[in-house]
Nucleic acid binder design. Structure first.
Length: 799
DNA sequence: AGCACGCCGACT
DNA sequence: GTCGGCGTGCTC
């Protein structure tokens, strides 16, 4: 008897282990480990992953059979299955969440219910449910409590039937098409019969004559000028038959010319040689490739990938969320052609699914992608690269809260291949490991074109008078106008996390706040609303102060919209492009702005963080950073590191080609070491200084950290529960462990829930793991009381 | 998650 | 006496 061990899609602690199901005869020899199945669990149907097939079960109750198979082939290979268990352990999350995370979005299933009333009487009795229809779609989540109760009662009484089916989120995209049904000869004779001026029909018959028995996409036919009416008549006459073809998506919009490897300089060559040796020897060595901006890291990646491919192995390259620009993809694809698959957040579910299939089937040998691409089902990996390894997008912010570097190292261990972590400004964690010899340090200290780094100057904003609301200093304004005269390009970076401008009454100081969250509302001029960035609450901008009825209620703070307005006022003839969350929401908008700026169709590009990375515009000779220090004001131990990294990175954007670049940094903290050292791009001294700070403050990389966050609708309850957790931890951990909190989070209330946190800093706590497991176990019970507990292992911040 | 089971207050 | 509130435990 064959029994499948199934991890069901019920994310709770109690169901975080496999359940046994009988494999019915009809599915014998079909059910394989790594496939998804549909099973009855309790009294409903859920999806599950088969994690093992055995011939006996530990469970001595009566086993239920598997209802059906969702996949025709395994979607999780043995490696990823093993990885999922490790990941669940590592991140304190459920196995099912980990398995689900490994699949491309859109392959996940959702449960849909349909209610069928037994007779008309029921329909009449419950108009609020059935709205006069006998069959309705039913969404338990959207229904209110009363409806749910009524539905349950009716179901138990057998008066309605509930039909469940698990539907796939995405279907292969089908395109309308027509197949030619007639021979060239028939077409010829038909052609003789149509009216002379029936141009459409003539065109169509011509096509059918030249390409007999072919299928044509409707979109192509209409593009050729054949109208829908013509197609309809053609169908009636039996010339064509309507069909559909599955769309083969190709996310690479532009065709690329093949390129040859570039000549390497001595530093690059040394790096490539060492990486290649590790690949050849199947050593799971981690390299830290430290190279200033423009030192040719990408070429090192490409030639190392080429080496892995030459050995018959595959390669995985990860880049940060916003850096995966068409520029980079084009460069990789021009070297490796169709072997490249891309996994990008801007892909539609369908496109991502297609790319995933190409990887899973072995067609694609090189995968380029963002964080989640670390789970790409590549086989026989020869090299894993993480570019800009310090980037914060490599840590997932919700469950499973994994750090991509750690997953990469796990997979490297499995495949016996090297990992290359690349950065101009490595994270302190990675650099510290390189210093200890855990990682091997490779450096590229020179820019490829031997060009000097741009000249960086710092403007002390404390000394700038508050005239003109003081966003732009005179130095920056002068520099901008001189570039405009020379027809060179300018980038203005607004370093403001969650950039925002708020409303304040000049008479009484009233600031509109979100009714659900402890945060002021943000002005959105385009929609004329005040928005909450945390819960999505929107309200119109008031004309008079709701508190004192004064009409002197004005905007404060600098958002990118405000900056754009000011720049346009100061330089009315300059062409300005703005890039921020608002202007890039639409698909492809990001790319369009970059292309437009790259083609010099604008003089000034302004925006938030997203313009700081990876873009290469040779005509840019000035970069201005406004509020360079806004991150420094956050109570976050990583804020200096982030500021330094950001400033170094933007500075690299200026003067990349043959023109000398200039960078102007505006700040209120001109003496802060992160800003001072960014001016000279002195990573070594920054590393030394910051390590000192981390050492004294007992922060990573000297200490391991865990963040425990608790939230509930009631503030007192949240605090009380967190104090309970604190006492429990104190009991279980050694006196060496530092336990901070519980403290309310920076934004205590979000969506009417109160958030408190506890931070644990430690070096060696063998009991920690079981203590945290216990906390999660206990919190499961309290969840009914509205308490939610989340654990973040090695959080990026303590906020 | 979702549902059943079981134990206490206010009602036809 | 019962109906229904929600605290607790289980789902192969």
């Amino acid at each position: 008897m064959q029994i499948a061990q199934v991890i069901v899609d019920v994310p709770t602690r109690q169901t975080n282990n496999p359940y046994s199901y009988l494999i019915p005869d009809t599915l014998k020899d079909q059910v394989m480990v790594g496939m998804r199945v549909e099973v009855s669990f309790g009294n409903r149907k859920v999806t599950g992953f088969v994690v093992a097939v055995t011939n006996k079960s530990e469970f001595d109750g009566k086993l239920k059979p598997i209802d059906s198979l969702i996949d025709l082939a395994p979607v999780i290979n043995p490696e990823l299955l093993k990885l999922s268990s490790w990941l669940a352990d590592q991140t304190y999350s459920f196995k099912i969440s980990c398995l689900q995370t490994m699949l491309p979005g859109g392959m996940r299933t959702r449960n849909q219910k349909r209610l069928i009333a037994k007779d008309d009487v029921i329909v009449q009795q419950h108009p609020e449910i059935f709205h006069g229809h006998q069959e309705i779609d039913y969404n338990q989540k959207r229904a209110d409590d009363k409806t749910v109760a009524t539905v349950l009662k009716l179901q138990r009484a057998g008066q309605i039937q509930v039909v469940e089916n698990l539907t796939h989120h995405t279907h292969p995209m089908m395109l309308k098409a027509y197949r030619g049904e007639i021979s060239p000869a028939t077409a010829q004779s038909a052609l003789a019969k149509v009216r002379k001026n029936a141009t459409c029909q003539i065109k169509l018959l011509d096509l059918l004559m030249k390409h007999p028995n072919q299928t044509f996409l409707q979109s192509k036919l209409t593009a050729d000028g054949i109208t829908a009416t013509t197609l309809k008549t053609a169908q009636q006459r039996g010339w064509l038959k309507k069909t559909a073809v599955q769309r083969v998506r190709n996310p690479f919009l532009r065709p690329t010319k093949p390129t040859a490897p570039l000549q390497l300089n001595a530093d690059q060559k040394r790096a490539v040689d060492q990486i290649n040796t590790a690949t050849t020897q199947r050593a799971d060595q981690v390299f830290l490739l430290e190279g200033v901006t423009g030192s040719g890291k990408t070429e090192v990646y490409l030639q190392s990938i080429a080496h892995a491919l030459a050995l018959g192995r595959t390669a995985l390259m990860l880049v940060p969320e916003i850096t995966l620009t068409p520029q980079i993809v084009a460069r990789i694809r021009s070297r490796f052609g169709d072997q490249v698959a891309m996994l990008h957040s801007a892909l539609s579910n369908g496109e991502r699914h297609d790319e995933w299939q190409r990887i899973n089937s072995g067609q694609a040998k090189v995968v380029v992608g963002v964080r989640s691409a670390i789970f790409a089902p590549l086989k026989n990996i020869g090299l894993i690269i993480i570019d800009e390894e310090h980037d914060s997008s490599y840590k997932q912010s919700d469950n499973p809260r994994y750090q991509t570097r750690d997953v990469a190292k796990w997979r490297a261990g499995y495949h016996h291949c090297p990992v290359v972590l690349g950065s101009a400004t490595p994270s302190l964690e990675s650099r510290a490991r390189a210093m200890k010899g855990v990682y091997q340090l490779l450096t590229l200290p020179h820019r490829i074109n031997r060009q000097a780094l741009p000249h960086v100057s710092i403007v002390d904003m404390k000394e700038v008078a508050t005239k003109r609301q003081g966003i732009l200093s005179d130095q920056l304004i002068d520099a901008i106008s001189s570039r405009l005269k020379r027809r060179e390009q300018i980038i203005l970076l607004l370093n403001r996390r969650g950039y925002s401008s708020f409303l304040m009454c000049r008479d009484c100081g009233y600031v509109p706040k979100c009714p659900n969250c402890d945060i002021s509302l943000t002005v959105h001029k385009d929609t004329h609303t005040l928005n909450c960035h945390y819960c999505g609450h929107k309200e119109p901008i008031p004309m008079v102060c709701p508190n004192c009825h004064s009409n002197r209620i004005r905007f404060y703070g600098v958002g990118s919209q405000q900056l754009e307005e000011q720049v346009k006022q100061l330089f009315p003839t300059a062409r300005v492009l703005r890039m921020d969350v608002d202007t890039t929401r639409r698909k492809g908008a990001h790319e369009a702005i970059i292309n437009q700026f790259g083609a010099h169709q604008a003089d000034i590009l302004l925006g938030t963080q997203m313009i700081a990375k990876g873009l290469d515009f040779p005509e840019v000779t000035l970069v201005g950073v406004l509020n360079a220090d806004s991150a420094l004001q956050f109570p976050d131990f990583r804020s200096s590191e982030r500021t330094f990294q950001l400033l170094t990175q933007v500075s690299g954007r200026s003067g990349r080609a043959d023109k000398v670049g200039e960078v102007i940094i505006q700040t209120f903290n001109p003496d802060h070491y992160a800003i001072q050292l960014a001016q000279t791009q002195d990573y070594e001294r920054f590393y030394a200084t910051e390590m000192r700070v981390r050492h004294d403050g007992k922060y990573p990389p000297y200490y391991f950290t865990v963040k425990v966050t608790g939230s509930a609708a009631n503030e007192n309850q949240t605090a009380a529960e967190m104090f309970g957790i604190l006492n429990f931890l104190k009991d279980r951990l050694s006196s060496q462990a530092i336990i901070l909190g519980p403290t309310p989070k920076a934004i205590t209330r979000i969506n009417n829930r109160y958030y408190y946190q506890i931070i644990i800093k430690y070096r060696k706590e063998p009991q920690l793991r079981s203590a945290l497991d216990q906390i999660l176990m206990d919190s499961q019970k309290k969840q009914r009381a509205g308490l939610q507990v989340a654990i973040d292992n090695e959080p990026l911040d303590f906020m």
